[in-house]
Design a binder for these strands. Sequence first.
RNA 1: GCUCCCGUAGCUCAAUGGACAGAGCGACAGCCUUCUAAGCUGUGGGUUGUGGGUUCGAAUCCCGCCGGGGGCGCCA
Length: 603
Amino acid sequence: MFEKEQQSIEAKIRDFCAANDIPQVELKWMPIPFSGEWGISTSFFATAAAEAKAGKSKGIPVPARAQEIAEAAKNALGLQPGISRGEAVKGYLNLYFSTAEYARRVVETVLADGEKFGAGHPKNERVMVEYAQPNTHHSFHIGHYRNTILGEALARIVEFAGFETIRASYPGDLGLGVITVLWAYEKFYKGQEPADIHERGQWLLKIYAEATNLLSEKEGKTPAEKAQREAYDAERREMYRKWDAGDEYVRQLWLETREWSMQELRDILEMMDVKIDVWFFESEVDEPSKKIVEELIARGIAEDERPTGPVIVKIDEKLGLAKEKYRVAVILRSDGTSLYLTKDLALAEQKFDEYHVDRSVYVVDNRQSLHFQQAFKILELWGFKQAEKCYHLAYGFVSLPEGAMSARRGRVVLFKEVYDEAIQRVLATIAEKNPNMPEGERRGVAQKIGMGALAYSMLSVDNNKDMVFDINEALSFDGKTGPYIQNAVVRANSILRKSGIDIRASNTRNFDYQLTNHEIELIEQMSRFPAVVQQAAEEYRPLLVAAYAYDLATAFHSFYHAVPVLQADDESVRAARLQLVASARQALTNALRLLAVSAPEVM
RNA sequence: GCUCCCGUAGCUCAAUGGACAGAGCGACAGCCUUCUAAGCUGUGGGUUGUGGGUUCGAAUCCCGCCGGGGGCGCCA
């Protein structure tokens, strides 16, 4: 927020270096890492080191010389506008901002920009974020939730940072798992489906687990049981064949059951406040993907071993690599049906050609790293230039204390179960902490708090880290959690409500009084937000926003506790602090919004 | 065998080339006749797995080793 001053000072330092025969090195600015006062800081170690390399050091050690330069630069700068004082310490040049001026500027910016505070300038670039890729004919579990909340937060951050953003979902509605459910439903359960959207989704999952059990080979079976299993498997294969051939009955059955899964998915996305722009289905890229395979064969990139083998691409060999890295990829089964990898080739093409995106981000767990490396390399070999604009954002998968989740074994923690449990726990907490809250408000508040806790527990861990899902940790309302941050907003709301003034109408923004350390820290945190947004967008890391929101909330809670606002003795101090509270609420709300979390009015 | 990810306080995690490595949980001690105690304040806790290297400066970058997890021809 002091960019102009910073640039002017930097220019003056360059002049100073030029005048004194000191090498010019790019200066890196950062906030002074001590609380109590704010300003910007840069060091001269790189400058001194460059000087030493040029043979002009006169034998002075780098740290000592850096300190010398810092002092000389300080003296050369003299008094600068907006800067109250400078100091040279340990090789760093620290420039302190004029307190009242800086405070006024930050608060004014936040209030003027409102819900856009922190947003970046338009970047003139279109980014597609693909996430929310659960398989249909299953139910949405906590691993899908991590994927979806991560993708949604990323999309919001990238969009807020100034990129045009398209949210894409890619449900897996195809494959052996889907056919397995279809077969078992048709054979044993047709017409018995529950009416409730979520019960029905979970019921499909149960059918899947049961069917897989029937169809998997086991030791110690009687010949009759073995024959039965083989008969079932033959039926399933026949169903897959019929699907592939476009059999009307099977296709109809498939569409109907798929829609049950989609209803559940849409309902959950609505609970999460996720609005997908583009839906891709695996089944829709099935045909186009086979055309790409034909082309790859025709051009000698792929090798067709049918009918005795599949269609493969020897990627390492084509790239001339000595060590095995990308391996050999199978891109078509020997029976001519497509695979997951096949379809990702066509999908990538569609994303760039039909939606004209400049960049394509895939939010998919890190077990699929090789898959995406292969897909992108094959696209490259095919001559698809935008392959280099594809990026797999890998995140660590979610497991349970008892081990990996397994839909086949029915060992999963479903999102809906966790959601219901969250609501119950919040309602219990409200009953205990805020018994006066009207009954009619409780459900809505509980949804926001419960979802806030869940979202924050996922987003406050860096995406590349595996995670063991512990419901008690995920639904904790104390400490470094979503509710902690929401509570800061609620406390700000409370003060502003009781103040009885309209913040927008009031423009007393005079911070020309002795600010406490808590006010200074709070203002410092608010001023960081725009830079945090940019960094999070560049690095694809929602964690940075999550960590920031917590730091901002901590600054607010400390301020709230120690600094009287409504009770301030001086009328002008009271007015200024109300502005500060209003801007803190705005900054907190904006940061939470990027995490797909909203704060209730009261809690 | 090849390859990717991880290793930081008792536990869960931050800090991705800069000043004293920070939070939460757990433990202990305080703070509600004052704007919401889902809060605040304080105490204790570390050879950043390990050995080298690069650098003025390394948890961070490079190489080796140890330990944990994932992936590697017709699953998604």
